[in-house]
């Protein structure tokens, strides 16, 4: 057994060094090339209906893109978060409820709600040492339960004034605000380097003086807060939240990041562009399939296949076992 696995490993290593430049080129350009190709193909197939309906297509991307930014940080340090949909749902309900009193306050409360759930995740992950995907799957069900309970009789409606905020410029501005802040933090401060170090080798990161536990906890809080912020944009679209509010967001995020070329185990090879390219690719793919008139079942099937292909291409097999 040991012999076999060793040979496989070294065989893979040899192959890696041999075709390294080609493989890395494919890995770098596949997402962006994929985005362009998918975009062109769907436009041709739908008689350029997609270009004409661009605002509509893009209107779906803002929430995903913002929430993806937070999860990007989590995944960079090798964690996962499946509770994002429930965070969005709960935060949206809070935003709706508070908006009846005061709208700016409702944004703040949304962020706070997200941060609290993030802290809940972080506490069990970091200080009770449970694997992140187990913790967040639990919180996903837990908070989905709350959402169902709160929306049992009727959707939770927000203040009627909320709809007034549903302007494209505002949504673009808010999304850019999150992306630019995230980019600067990740690329030009020690925050990004620390996250990558934790993802690539937590123990060595600790021995380099990084307070890894504290860092991991606060990144979960941050990610929750970012999704809490996205809840505002989610709510202004329709002005109310139903029992399915925010559901499937976690899968969307995960697919978006993988489509964007992010290695699922995080580490030093992640790039901030993964978020943008990935979210766009996901939305274009999704809208394209809808416009083509595919049924939901068919769409899920196609999404599943695309997802699998991308994971197969981008998975960093050497460090897959370190998903925390």
């Amino acid at each position: 057994m040991v012999a076999v696995s060793k040979t496989e490993m070294t065989a893979a290593k040899e192959k890696k060094t041999g075709n390294l430049s080609m493989i890395s080129a494919v890995k770098t350009y596949l997402p962006i090339v994929g985005l362009i190709i998918v975009f062109l193909v769907f436009n041709v197939l739908t008689n350029f209906r997609m270009v004409k309906n661009m605002p509509l297509v893009l209107s779906q991307v803002y929430v995903t893109m913002i929430a993806t930014t937070g999860v990007f940080f989590i995944m960079t340090m090798g964690g996962l978060d499946f509770s994002q949909g429930s965070i969005l749902g709960i935060a949206s309900i809070v935003v709706c409820m508070v908006s009846r009193i005061n709208i700016p306050l409702s944004i703040l409360c949304g962020i706070l709600t997200g941060a609290l759930i993030g802290a809940f995740n972080g506490y069990f992950y970091v200080y009770r040492k449970i694997k992140s995907f187990i913790v967040t799957i639990c919180t996903m069900f837990l908070f989905r339960g709350f959402i169902k309970y709160l929306t049992t009789n009727a959707p939770v409606a927000g203040s009627a004034a909320l709809i007034n905020f549903d302007r494209t410029e505002l949504k673009v501005a808010l999304t850019l605000l999150v992306l630019v802040t995230g980019f600067v933090l990740f690329r030009f401060t020690k925050f990004g380097t620390y996250l990558k170090a934790i993802g690539a080798g937590e123990k060595a990161a600790m021995f380099s003086g990084i307070r890894t536990d504290k860092m991991k906890f606060w990144v979960y809080v941050l990610s929750g807060a970012i999704t809490g912020f996205a809840a505002f944009i989610n709510v202004i679209k329709v002005g109310s939240v139903t029992s399915s509010g925010g559901s499937q967001l976690e899968t969307q995020i995960l697919i978006a990041l993988v489509l964007g070329g992010m290695p699922i185990s995080g580490g030093a090879k992640v790039r901030f562009e993964n978020i943008i390219v990935g979210s766009l690719l996901y939305i274009v793919l999704n809208s394209g399939l809808t416009m083509m008139g595919f049924s939901t079942q068919m769409m899920q099937l196609i999404q599943g296949i695309v997802f699998l292909v991308f994971v197969a291409v981008f998975a960093d097999r050497k460090s897959l076992q370190v998903i925390k």
């Binding site: 990558k196 170090a197 690539a200 080798g201 123990k203 060595a204 990161a205 021995f207 380099s208 580490g267 030093a268 090879k269 960093d316 050497k318 460090s319």
Partner: peptide, 8 residues
Amino acid sequence: NESVVLNQ
């Protein structure tokens, strides 16, 4: 494991 972050 403890001195260098290998994959960085």
